[in-house]
């Protein structure tokens, strides 16, 4: 079983997000990049499949801001067997279409049985990478997956819908799946293990394919959302806030 996990780094939302001078996008010089949290689940799911059904996991990503090594070492520490970074002269805000084209070019040569990636990323303005990979590779795609097992050339996935409804879907391998949540919460990779791996492991490099196709979308303006409404903010310390909440509930006959 040859499993490939496509990883994407996105601006960390732990910080306040600064905008560039034109207000047309984030100021990428002033943000830290982290691995998309859904990709962490994709990686975990890949390792779970490997642990159950055997095979090897290749972690792959576009080295957008020359900071992917740590992500890949972490992936290796968590159980990936091989790591590849796509290198080139990139814009930190490269869109999903571009990244998907670069990723697909490398994945094709890996002849995977299973390609996993996060179901979405918080900055996927032009759509999600998973279905794009499937389109490039001519593979079937299922997204919003919360569990995946492989048996006899078929992936059996749980696909989530609104209301907590889950469909069981069978997909012929090879295929691409967009992971919403791994069957188990992502494991912890001890830093000493990551550092050990960083000393010994090789990260393969692949050149990005020639300028990827443009997504055709122009981002005109980015801003904090205009509040359609604004909550009535309750002032005071915790005690006073609690008292006010109780007043509101009492007033509405909710107590």
């Amino acid at each position: 079983m040859n499993i490939v996990v496509a990883l994407k780094q996105i601006p960390s939302m732990a910080d306040e997000l600064p905008l560039n001078a034109q207000g047309s996008n984030l100021d990428f010089d002033e943000v830290d990049f982290v691995l998309n949290e859904f990709d962490e689940h994709a990686l975990e799911q890949a390792v779970l499949v490997k642990e159950k059904s055997g095979g090897a996991v290749t972690a792959l990503g576009v080295d957008l801001i020359e900071a992917l090594d740590d992500v890949l070492y972490t992936a290796l520490a968590k159980g990936a067997d091989k790591a590849i970074k796509i290198v080139g002269d990139f814009e930190p805000g490269a869109d999903s279409h571009t990244q998907a084209a670069w990723l697909a070019a490398v994945i094709r040569d890996l002849s995977p049985d299973l390609v996993l990636t996060g179901v979405q990323a918080a900055n996927d303005l032009d759509g999600q990478i998973g279905p794009m990979l499937a389109a490039h590779l001519d593979l079937p795609y299922v997204g919003v997956v919360t569990g995946l097992e492989v048996a006899q050339g078929v992936a059996k996935v749980h696909k989530e819908f609104a209301g907590g409804v889950v469909a069981d879907i069978e997909v012929d391998l090879p295929c691409v799946a967009g992971i919403q949540a791994a069957a188990k919460p992502p494991r912890y990779a001890p830093i000493s293990k990551i550092r050990q791996i960083a000393k010994t492991a090789q990260i393969a490099e692949a050149e990005a394919a020639a300028a990827g196709p443009d997504a055709g979308v122009t981002l005109r303006r980015m801003a904090k959302p205009v509040a359609t409404g604004r909550a009535d903010m309750l002032a005071g310390d915790a005690k006073q806030v609690a008292a006010k909440i109780i007043d509101i509930l009492t007033e509405r006959g909710l107590l």
């Binding site: 001890p190 830093i191 550092r195």
Partner: peptide, 8 residues
């Protein structure tokens, strides 16, 4: 017990 993280 997270010695590596401490080092970092």
């Amino acid at each position: 017990g997270e010695e590596g993280l401490f080092e970092q």
